[in-house]
Protein backbone atom coordinates (compact mmCIF):
# COMPACT_ATOMS: atom_id res chain seq x y z
CA UNK A 1 0.00 0.00 0.00
CA UNK A 2 2.84 2.39 0.84
CA UNK A 3 4.44 1.74 -2.53
CA UNK A 4 1.16 2.11 -4.41
CA UNK A 5 0.51 5.65 -3.19
CA UNK A 6 3.88 6.97 -4.39
CA UNK A 7 2.93 6.74 -8.07
CA UNK A 8 -0.30 8.64 -7.49
CA UNK A 9 1.47 11.22 -5.34
CA UNK A 10 3.96 11.84 -8.13
CA UNK A 11 1.26 13.11 -10.54
CA UNK A 12 0.40 16.44 -8.84
CA UNK A 13 4.01 16.80 -7.69
CA UNK A 14 5.42 16.68 -11.20
CA UNK A 15 2.49 18.12 -13.14
CA UNK A 16 1.51 21.05 -10.93
CA UNK A 17 4.34 21.42 -8.43
CA UNK A 18 1.89 20.58 -5.66
CA UNK A 19 3.11 17.72 -3.46
CA UNK A 20 0.55 14.97 -2.92
CA UNK A 21 2.01 13.85 0.39
CA UNK A 22 4.67 14.74 2.94
CA UNK A 23 7.22 12.46 1.22
CA UNK A 24 6.44 14.12 -2.12
CA UNK A 25 7.00 17.53 -0.50
CA UNK A 26 10.50 16.36 0.45
CA UNK A 27 11.01 15.11 -3.12
CA UNK A 28 9.81 18.47 -4.42
CA UNK A 29 12.37 20.18 -2.21
CA UNK A 30 15.05 17.94 -3.70
CA UNK A 31 13.87 18.92 -7.22
CA UNK A 32 14.17 22.60 -6.44
CA UNK A 33 17.63 22.13 -4.90
CA UNK A 34 18.83 20.35 -8.05
CA UNK A 35 17.28 22.96 -10.36
CA UNK A 36 14.32 20.89 -11.59
CA UNK A 37 11.17 23.01 -11.76
CA UNK A 38 7.97 20.94 -11.60
CA UNK A 39 5.06 22.05 -13.75
CA UNK A 40 3.77 21.61 -17.32
CA UNK A 41 7.36 21.46 -18.60
CA UNK A 42 7.74 18.09 -16.92
CA UNK A 43 5.12 16.74 -19.34
CA UNK A 44 6.57 18.41 -22.46
CA UNK A 45 10.24 19.40 -22.59
CA UNK A 46 11.37 17.25 -19.65
CA UNK A 47 9.19 14.25 -20.45
CA UNK A 48 12.25 11.97 -20.47
CA UNK A 49 12.91 12.85 -16.84
CA UNK A 50 9.29 12.19 -15.93
CA UNK A 51 9.33 8.79 -17.62
CA UNK A 52 12.60 7.89 -15.89
CA UNK A 53 10.84 8.51 -12.56
CA UNK A 54 7.81 6.48 -13.66
CA UNK A 55 10.04 3.56 -14.65
CA UNK A 56 12.02 3.89 -11.43
CA UNK A 57 8.78 3.44 -9.49
CA UNK A 58 7.73 0.48 -11.68
CA UNK A 59 11.09 -1.28 -11.34
CA UNK A 60 11.33 -0.56 -7.61
CA UNK A 61 7.85 -2.02 -7.10
CA UNK A 62 8.84 -5.20 -8.95
CA UNK A 63 12.05 -5.48 -6.92
CA UNK A 64 10.16 -4.80 -3.69
CA UNK A 65 7.56 -7.49 -4.42
CA UNK A 66 10.26 -10.02 -5.34
CA UNK A 67 12.27 -9.13 -2.24
CA UNK A 68 9.24 -9.42 0.00
CA UNK A 69 8.32 -12.84 -1.40
CA UNK A 70 11.87 -14.11 -0.87
CA UNK A 71 12.78 -12.53 2.49
CA UNK A 72 9.48 -11.71 4.19
CA UNK A 73 10.25 -13.86 7.26
CA UNK A 74 13.68 -12.30 7.75
CA UNK A 75 12.37 -8.77 7.08
CA UNK A 76 9.60 -9.23 9.64
CA UNK A 77 12.25 -9.85 12.32
CA UNK A 78 13.52 -6.28 11.82
CA UNK A 79 10.44 -5.08 13.71
CA UNK A 80 11.76 -6.85 16.82
CA UNK A 81 15.02 -4.85 16.88
CA UNK A 82 15.09 -2.66 19.99
CA UNK A 83 14.52 1.03 19.28
CA UNK A 84 17.58 2.06 21.26
CA UNK A 85 19.86 0.18 18.84
CA UNK A 86 18.38 2.07 15.90
CA UNK A 87 18.98 5.50 17.47
CA UNK A 88 22.72 5.91 16.61
CA UNK A 89 22.40 4.88 12.93
CA UNK A 90 19.33 7.12 12.52
CA UNK A 91 20.95 10.13 14.21
CA UNK A 92 24.07 9.65 12.08
CA UNK A 93 22.11 9.34 8.81
CA UNK A 94 19.92 12.36 9.64
CA UNK A 95 23.01 14.42 10.47
CA UNK A 96 24.73 13.31 7.28
CA UNK A 97 21.62 14.25 5.31
CA UNK A 98 21.79 17.77 6.74
CA UNK A 99 25.57 18.01 6.36
CA UNK A 100 25.78 16.87 2.73
CA UNK A 101 23.47 19.67 1.55
CA UNK A 102 26.41 22.14 1.61
CA UNK A 103 29.14 20.25 3.50
CA UNK A 104 29.18 22.79 6.34
CA UNK A 105 28.90 22.35 10.08
CA UNK A 106 26.39 25.18 10.19
CA UNK A 107 23.79 22.93 8.57
CA UNK A 108 24.08 20.58 11.55
CA UNK A 109 23.39 23.50 13.87
CA UNK A 110 20.42 24.44 11.68
CA UNK A 111 19.21 20.84 11.93
CA UNK A 112 19.20 21.07 15.73
CA UNK A 113 17.48 24.47 15.72
CA UNK A 114 14.76 23.23 13.40
CA UNK A 115 14.51 20.07 15.48
CA UNK A 116 13.86 22.18 18.58
CA UNK A 117 11.36 24.26 16.64
CA UNK A 118 9.60 21.11 15.40
CA UNK A 119 9.49 19.74 18.94
CA UNK A 120 8.02 23.00 20.27
CA UNK A 121 5.50 23.17 17.44
CA UNK A 122 4.41 19.60 18.09
CA UNK A 123 4.00 20.30 21.79
CA UNK A 124 2.10 23.46 20.85
CA UNK A 125 -0.10 21.31 18.57
CA UNK A 126 0.84 23.21 15.43
CA UNK A 127 0.97 20.87 12.42
CA UNK A 128 4.31 20.86 10.60
CA UNK A 129 3.17 19.75 7.12
CA UNK A 130 1.99 23.27 6.11
CA UNK A 131 5.38 24.66 7.12
CA UNK A 132 7.09 22.08 4.93
CA UNK A 133 4.80 22.97 2.01
CA UNK A 134 5.49 26.66 2.56
CA UNK A 135 9.25 26.09 2.53
CA UNK A 136 9.03 24.03 -0.66
CA UNK A 137 6.49 26.10 -2.59
CA UNK A 138 7.31 29.55 -1.20
CA UNK A 139 9.90 30.55 -3.77
CA UNK A 140 7.82 29.67 -6.85
CA UNK A 141 4.68 31.14 -5.25
CA UNK A 142 6.48 34.44 -4.61
CA UNK A 143 7.86 34.57 -8.16
CA UNK A 144 4.49 33.88 -9.78
CA UNK A 145 2.71 36.24 -7.42
CA UNK A 146 5.02 39.09 -8.36
CA UNK A 147 4.65 38.33 -12.08
CA UNK A 148 0.84 38.40 -11.73
CA UNK A 149 0.99 41.65 -9.76
CA UNK A 150 3.35 43.24 -12.27
CA UNK A 151 1.09 42.42 -15.23
CA UNK A 152 -2.40 42.97 -13.79
CA UNK A 153 -2.02 44.83 -10.47
CA UNK A 154 -4.66 43.61 -8.01
CA UNK A 155 -7.10 42.92 -10.87
CA UNK A 156 -5.87 39.34 -11.09
CA UNK A 157 -7.85 38.71 -7.92
CA UNK A 158 -11.11 39.11 -9.88
CA UNK A 159 -10.42 36.26 -12.30
CA UNK A 160 -12.85 33.32 -11.92
CA UNK A 161 -10.18 30.68 -11.28
CA UNK A 162 -8.64 32.80 -8.54
CA UNK A 163 -12.03 33.35 -6.90
CA UNK A 164 -12.79 29.60 -6.98
CA UNK A 165 -9.38 28.78 -5.46
CA UNK A 166 -9.87 31.45 -2.77
CA UNK A 167 -13.25 30.00 -1.84
CA UNK A 168 -11.73 26.51 -1.61
CA UNK A 169 -8.86 27.76 0.56
CA UNK A 170 -11.12 29.73 2.90
CA UNK A 171 -13.50 26.76 3.17
CA UNK A 172 -10.62 24.42 4.02
CA UNK A 173 -9.36 26.92 6.59
CA UNK A 174 -12.59 27.32 8.46
CA UNK A 175 -14.12 23.87 7.93
CA UNK A 176 -12.55 22.31 11.08
CA UNK A 177 -14.12 25.07 13.19
CA UNK A 178 -17.51 24.73 11.53
CA UNK A 179 -17.41 20.93 11.86
CA UNK A 180 -16.48 21.16 15.56
CA UNK A 181 -19.33 23.61 16.18
CA UNK A 182 -21.77 21.29 14.40
CA UNK A 183 -20.53 18.32 16.44
CA UNK A 184 -20.95 20.33 19.66
CA UNK A 185 -24.51 21.34 18.68
CA UNK A 186 -25.41 17.72 17.85
CA UNK A 187 -23.92 16.49 21.16
CA UNK A 188 -25.80 19.16 23.11
CA UNK A 189 -29.09 18.29 21.42
CA UNK A 190 -28.55 14.60 22.23
CA UNK A 191 -27.70 15.31 25.88
CA UNK A 192 -30.67 17.60 26.50
CA UNK A 193 -33.22 15.67 28.66
CA UNK A 194 -36.73 15.42 27.19
Amino acid sequence: MNNAKEGAGLIPTLGFGIPGSASMAILLGAFLITGITPGPEMLTTHLDLTFSMVWAIVVSNVITVAGCFLFIRQLAKVTFVRGSILVPPLVILVSLGAYTARNTLFDLVLMILFGVFGWAATRGRWPLAPLLLGLVLGRSAERNFFISYSFFGWHWLYRPAVIVLAVVIISALFWPMIAARRRAIVLNSVNVPP
Binding site: G118, L128, P176
Partner: peptide
Amino acid sequence: TDMPTLRSQESGPVLASEGVAVIKRQDQ
Protein backbone atom coordinates in the same frame (compact mmCIF):
# COMPACT_ATOMS: atom_id res chain seq x y z
CA THR B 1 -11.27 18.38 23.56
CA ASP B 2 -14.51 20.15 22.65
CA MET B 3 -13.22 23.52 21.50
CA PRO B 4 -13.21 24.42 17.81
CA THR B 5 -9.79 25.28 16.47
CA LEU B 6 -8.16 26.55 13.31
CA ARG B 7 -5.87 23.52 13.34
CA SER B 8 -7.30 20.27 12.06
CA GLN B 9 -5.64 18.15 14.72
CA GLU B 10 -7.54 14.95 14.19
CA SER B 11 -7.39 14.91 10.39
CA GLY B 12 -4.40 17.04 9.40
CA PRO B 13 -1.06 15.45 8.57
CA VAL B 14 0.99 16.29 11.66
CA LEU B 15 4.50 15.05 10.97
CA ALA B 16 5.93 12.79 13.67
CA SER B 17 3.58 14.06 16.33
CA GLU B 18 2.08 10.74 17.30
CA GLY B 19 5.33 9.40 18.74
CA VAL B 20 6.19 12.58 20.61
CA ALA B 21 2.90 12.58 22.45
CA VAL B 22 3.63 9.31 24.24
CA ILE B 23 7.28 10.02 25.10
CA LYS B 24 8.00 11.56 28.50
CA ARG B 25 9.25 15.13 28.45
CA GLN B 26 12.44 14.12 30.27
CA ASP B 27 13.22 11.59 27.53
CA GLN B 28 12.58 14.22 24.87
